[in-house]
Design a protein around this nucleic acid. Structure first.
Length: 228
DNA sequence: GCGACAG
DNA sequence: ATCTTGTCGC
């Protein structure tokens, strides 16, 4: 938990301030297990955008699923104007504010949130999943569909993994969740170990490439965009 | 300087 | 991220 959440962690005035904020956040990330022995609820987070939108709005969604049945226990969506542009490496500053609003209204809270984006597999070790976890004070896992930095190619079978390496450092795990599909890139967000993160992601993938919570969040964010 | 670049 | 139908394959 963050005692005093610095305003610039959510709303830095510019890229330079955002970069400085990430440096501060990097020192606060906890890459260790802090989860209940038996995870009951899994969260999913995603944001949808409208192309060519002059209003620059973002449509965020946070969902809570029963880890055993995949039943949706709660959903919260937030549509608002983005106060930060999309800049590779600074996605968190664009999406976290709206997701933070979703969290405040989420009726049933999950034990851990699977985030559609990188965790520590980031140039400065502070991807969207890390930022969301730090701001909410909740365990998070980064699950990205493509790479920002690093490389790693797992075997062809579901469950096959390969270390995600960058500059000689391990920053995550490339995980094959489905045969014939491109791998997903798992990395620590906050308050979870890479090993546990990888197990959770694989366990929540029902024969699909992406884990159920993220698919549900994607659907919810999309629904929010199609409405308001 | 050139190329890369989550969502 | 988003624009989009059918189609190939297990």
């Amino acid at each position: 938990m963050v005692p005093d959440l610095p305003p610039h962690w959510l709303h830095p005035p510019d890229i330079a301030a955002a970069r400085a904020a990430q440096a501060e956040m990097a020192a606060c990330i906890v890459a260790e297990d802090d989860l209940p022995a038996r995870i009951a609820r899994l969260g999913g987070a995603d944001v949808s955008n409208t192309r060519f939108d002059p209003g620059k709005r973002v449509h965020a969604a946070l969902v809570t699923l029963d880890a055993a049945t995949d039943a949706v226990l709660a959903t919260a969506a937030e549509s608002r104007r983005a106060d930060f542009p999309y800049v590779p490496g600074y996605l968190g500053f664009r999406e976290v504010p709206a997701l933070h609003a979703c969290w405040r209204r989420l009726a049933v809270r999950p034990d851990v949130i699977l985030v559609d984006g990188q965790g520590m597999a980031h140039p400065r070790g502070v991807g969207l999943a890390c930022q969301l976890g730090l701001v909410l004070g909740v365990p998070t896992i980064g699950v990205a569909k493509s790479l920002l930095v690093g490389e790693g190619e797992p075997g062809p079978d579901p469950g096959d993994t390969a270390p995600l390496l960058w500059k000689g450092r391990r920053i995550g795990t490339a995980l094959r969740t489905r045969r014939g599909a491109r791998p997903v890139y798992v990395s620590v967000g906050h308050r979870v170990s890479l090993e546990t993160a990888t197990c959770i992601v694989l366990a929540s993938t029902r024969g699909r490439r992406l884990p159920t919570p993220i698919r549900a969040a994607h659907d919810a964010a999309n629904a929010a965009r199609l409405q308001g």
